[in-house]
C-alpha cells in the first residue's frame, strides 16, 4: 500500500492513487489539470473533470491541456458539474457516489481505456457544514474503492475557501499537496481496519481525533488500528487512541492495535495501550 507522500506536481500517479490538492488559485488548478490529464492521456486512460461551475467554465479550466477539444469530441475527456454528478438524487449520497465512480472506471476499461483519471473540484462539498460527516464517509469509502479499482483521483480544494478544514480532509488521502499545510498523516478505513500513515503528533491530534470519531460513529464491533505505516506517534496522538478505546469500551466494543513499531511502544504504553510484540 502506498505510503504517505507529499506532491510537488500532479504527475507520476498510478491506479489507486488518491490525492488531496489544495490549489491557490485558478491558475494553479489549471496546471494541475493539464499535468495530470496529459500524463493520463499518454497512458491511455479516460479523463473526467468534475467541477462546481458551468461546463463552459470547466472547459476554460482545461485551456492548458493539449488536445482538449479533440478529446472532448471523441469522448476520452468528459466534463460533469457537481450538481449533475453528486446531487443527481437531490442530496449527496456518499456510497452511491463511490459506486458511480467504480462503474465509470469499469465502463472505461470495457471501452478499451487503460483506466480512469478523475479530477474533482469538491470545494463546495467540503464547505457544506451540514454535509461534513457525509463527505468524510465519502472520502473513506473512495479511498477503499481506489485500492481495488483502475482509477486515479485528485480531490481539489480551493485552499482559501476551505480554510482550517483542509488538514482534516487532506488526511483522508495518502497523497497530499498544500504548501506548508499538509496534515502530515493519513487515515484510511477498509474491512474493519483503520490504517494510519505518516506522523501523528500534538499538531495533528485534533484532526486525528475527529476522523477517528467519524470512523467509530460509522462502524460497529471490533476496530483494528494498523500502525504499521506510521513513522512517528507521540503522547498526544496516543491519548486520542486511549480515548477511543475508552469510548468503545463503554459500548462493549474493542480497539485492537496492530503493526506497532518499536518507537511507538513507549508513548502507547503511557496509556496502557499495547499491540503485541513490536516490529
Amino acid at each position: 500500500m502506498t505510503a504517505l507522500r507529499r506532491l510537488e506536481r500532479a504527475v507520476d500517479l498510478d491506479h489507486g492513487d488518491h490525492v488531496a490538492w489544495a490549489y491557490e488559485d485558478r491558475a494553479d488548478l489549471r496546471t494541475v489539470l493539464a499535468d495530470t490529464f496529459t500524463e493520463a492521456a499518454g497512458r491511455g486512460e479516460q479523463l473526467v473533470y468534475v467541477g462546481n461551475r458551468h461546463p463552459a467554465a470547466l472547459c476554460d479550466d482545461l485551456a492548458d491541456l493539449d488536445g482538449r477539444d479533440a478529446m472532448l469530441e471523441n469522448g476520452r475527456l468528459r466534463l460533469h458539474s457537481i450538481a449533475e454528478l453528486y446531487h443527481a438524487t437531490g442530496r449527496f449520497e456518499p456510497r452511491a457516489q463511490v459506486e458511480t465512480f467504480r462503474a465509470e472506471a469499469q465502463r472505461a476499461v470495457s471501452a478499451g481505456y487503460h483506466g480512469l483519471r478523475v479530477v474533482g473540484d469538491v470545494t463546495d462539498l467540503v464547505t457544506d457544514a451540514a454535509g461534513h460527516a457525509a463527505f468524510v464517509d465519502y472520502e473513506l469509502a473512495l479511498e477503499a474503492m481506489y485500492a481495488v479499482t483502475p482509477v486515479t483521483g485528485i480531490c481539489a480544494f480551493d485552499r482559501h475557501r476551505v480554510g482550517e478544514q483542509w488538514r482534516e480532509i487532506a488526511a483522508l488521502h495518502r497523497l497530499q499537496r498544500a504548501v506548508g499545510q499538509e496534515p502530515g498523516f493519513a487515515l484510511t478505513y477498509a474491512s474493519g481496519a483503520v490504517r494510519l500513515f505518516g506522523e501523528l503528533d500534538a499538531s495533528s491530534a485534533a484532526e486525528f481525533r475527529r476522523l477517528l470519531d467519524a470512523v467509530l460513529a460509522a462502524t460497529t464491533g471490533v476496530l483494528e488500528v494498523d500502525l504499521d505505516r506510521l513513522d512517528f506517534i507521540d503522547v498526544s496522538a496516543s491519548r486520542v487512541l486511549a480515548e477511543a478505546r475508552e469510548t468503545m469500551a463503554c459500548a462493549n466494543r474493542d480497539l485492537q492495535l496492530t503493526g506497532v513499531r518499536r518507537a511507538a511502544v513507549l508513548p502507547l504504553a503511557a496509556f496502557n495501550l499495547h499491540g503485541g510484540a513490536p516490529r
Partner: peptide
C-alpha cells in the same frame, strides 16, 4: 521522542 515531547 524525548525532545519532541518537550517541543510539543
Amino acid at each position: 521522542l524525548a525532545v519532541h515531547e518537550l517541543v510539543a
